[in-house]
Computed example of a mutant assay.
Amino acid sequence: MSTNPPNTAWNPITNWATSPGYDNGTTTNGLVVPSDDVVTVNGTFTRVSTASNTWSLRLTLNGVMVGSSQVFTSSKTVSISAAGVSVVAGDVIGMDLQSLFAATNGAAEANTTYIEVVSA
């Protein structure tokens, strides 16, 4: 039994970098949308830690949830998707992590944590 209190706050994943060829850039909390469109947003997060922990992931548009993983998971990796998202140039698409336990290792594996935006 864990003695850690529940941590129900959503915490933004920060320090994003863009893939080669994506020239619109990032902010601290996500990717900047280059143009108006309707898109599908895909996100994958892989934790560095393999310690057992229950957590969830959500996608955000300007800080507001647009998709959420279906269930809390103890998996090391989780993928989520949100289809039919209307965006305008300058919007910020991000990803937030929520842990059931306060003492979690939410560090991301850089090569397997990403946000992908695909025109619908």
Rank of each mutant, 00 (worst) to 15 (best):
N42L: 10
D37S: 14
Y22P: 02
V32R: 15
F101I: 14
A108Y: 09
N53T: 08
T46P: 07
G25K: 07
T50H: 05
V117N: 11
T77F: 03
P5G: 08
T112P: 03
A82D: 02
G90K: 10
T54Q: 09
N7T: 06
I115Y: 03
T27H: 11
S69H: 12
L61V: 02
T113E: 06
N24H: 11
N111F: 10
L97I: 02
G94L: 00
S81R: 11
R47I: 00
L31C: 12
R47A: 00
V92A: 06
S79N: 08
L57W: 01
I115P: 06
W10R: 09
L31S: 03
N7F: 01
S99V: 01
P5N: 06
A103W: 05
D23R: 08
T46A: 02
A17H: 07
V39F: 08
T18P: 12
V78Y: 06
S68G: 12
G106V: 00
G43C: 03
D96N: 13
V118H: 11
V88Q: 12
P34H: 03
N4P: 08
V64Q: 12
S68R: 13
T3V: 13
A110T: 15
V32H: 08
P12F: 04
S86G: 04
V92D: 02
F72D: 09
G25C: 02
A83L: 01
S52P: 04
P12D: 11
A107R: 12
S19E: 12
S35A: 14
D37G: 07
D37N: 15
A9Q: 07
M65Q: 13
V33I: 14
P20I: 06
T60C: 09
T14S: 11
I13E: 02
S69F: 06
D23T: 15
V117P: 09
S69Y: 11
N29T: 15
T27Y: 13
S52V: 11
Q70S: 14
T8S: 14
N62L: 03
A89Q: 15
I80C: 02
S19G: 13
G25D: 03
